[in-house]
Design a protein around this nucleic acid. Sequence first.
DNA 1: AGCGTGACGGTTGAC
DNA 2: GCGTCAACCGTCACG
Length: 353
Amino acid sequence: MEQTYGEVNQLGGVFVNGRPLPNAIRLRIVELAQLGIRPCDISRQLRVSHGCVSKILARYNETGSILPGAIGGSKPRVTTPNVVKNIREYKQGDPGIFAWEIRDRLLADGVCDKYNVPSVSSISRILRNKIGNFSQPNQYENGKQAPPQSGLSYYPYSYPTAMSPSGTKMSNHPGVPVTGGHVSISRGWPSAHTVSNILGIRAFMDPSAIASAEGYAPKMEDWGSVNRATFTSAHGVNGIDKSAIDADIKYPQPSSTLSSYVPACAYSPSNQYGVYSGPAGSYVSPGHHWQAQGTSLSHPGGGVAMHPSDIHSSMAFKHAVRDGDRKPPSPLSKQQQEALSNIHGLSLSTSSS
DNA sequence: AGCGTGACGGTTGAC
DNA sequence: GCGTCAACCGTCACG
């Protein structure tokens, strides 16, 4: 798991197969798109496949969130203890009741909604396996499998009440304290994470958070949401709402520009995957701690100024040679070029890559 | 040339 | 603790 090795895509960008792009890059994709930059240009600039850009933008347009979906896990259980209990009661009240009738009653009584009502076959299975013997009314609840599905927010949208694996894993990240405001994050998309956490800003303030990551920072799914609410509105740049973002940032930022919420450090090793930027010990090479590369980390504030080389050197360390022969044309207007250059203090000159 | 889409190989986490 | 399963990921190739 920690042994993640980056791969290099056709554009020379580094990615980790199976893992989402860092939020910072996702954020930048959306930002650049909102600046009017074409997806193909974004793809080239960020060295992310156009398919990925397309997907992220489509997702953002559809959901308002830049975050990846919840990876892994299972669907939320519909046969919660409460449901089983109700089914049992229905069955006890009317031993001849049909499964479909139970299903209807679950809906009618508001025990379930149409999204989480068990199927007739599931109800039949419950009747057969769990309620067959009425003399053991609480076997299910007392059994080992009684996951409180009510708190299991697996699907980002249909279960807005985020589940809280924090009690298990998140809080186990040493140096990644789970504050009250961050408890219910994780898989539920509309979560309570702050942008600062998402972008790794906290790493500036809390070195322990960095150390805790052991080169592979908190999981993407554990990041908070950067959703449309974070962008839209009064911002000067295509609806990007800087004020809303600023309000969400818990730590002072060195700049009042866009970089205030997408600091260059987003690309720094303090960011999620060390992989993309500096690589997490396991990524670059054993013993080569990413902090050695991350100037931004060792120089909070001053390190915010990031150069393409900071990105590219880390992103292309695997096949750095490929970088040289990839000089995508720059069809951007001068204004767009400037926009690209100004964002986050990054110089994204296509000719210099 | 730009973009949408699906196959693919991969990771993740609940069970 | 491990295997299975089903979700997601980004890349790539195709149209």
